[in-house]
Amino acid sequence: MRRLRSIAVVLAMFAAGATGVWAAGEKIEIPDRDWSWNGPLGSFDRAELQRGLQVYTEVCASCHSLRLLAYRNLAALGYGEEEIKAYAANYEVEDGPNDQGEMFLRAAIPSDRFVPPFANEQAARAANNGAYPPDLSLMTKARKNGANYVFALLTGYQDEPPEGFQLMDGMYYNKVFPGHQIAMAPPLFEDGVEYADGTEATVERMAADTTAFLAWAAEPELEDRKSMGIWVLSVLAILFVMTVAVKRQVWSDVH
């Protein structure tokens, strides 16, 4: 029993080391949330994604681009063609040159990529006190523990930093952001958006909806992938039983 326990301790040390907990110097707790798309049978909740798009559109999009997505991709959220056209038409893109050789502005159409809020990185920095709001297309894949981290970050603001913490000018204290100083002002406030489906817009609800929307944006193939996976694993499982039977039959005269 004691031996078992010491083995368990050694294994736990290995696990801790492998995940870099010691290396980080400080352990930041990121709680796991029970997302709808977790697990082998998980899928996105359309209503949640639609609310998430609303938060992105009304809040995040003023600073953060979503350059890998096209408006047509919103069909996966359950929107019809006309709704997508109407959504895209709210944005302007530069097109051209026309037959006069001039560039012109036109309303965005479903085949256009999401129009970024700033023309380039310099413009983004100039408008954001020198900070560069990252593109959000792959955010949940580009951070360790992606979705949980994004949610924890959005809900991890603290009005007053802990005593003795030197907060730089124009920075905000966030419990989970590395170094705890983040240039992004707390983006979500109670009733910050008025949900089209009437859901009560608590900070937690908005953060969860936004995270769900970003998880879909990063992995739009997730549902196809998982359902194909179930099918592939089932076929392989049957095939496995068959190959084992064949092998036994073939080897029966040898053993």
Binding site: V232, L233, L236
Partner: peptide
């Protein structure tokens, strides 16, 4: 026959990761 058993077992593991 024996390699087929190993191959399918391996593909099960590979597919579990990929999907």
């Amino acid at each position: 026959a024996k390699d087929s058993v190993g191959l399918v077992a391996f593909l099960l593991f590979f597919s579990a990761v990929v999907f």
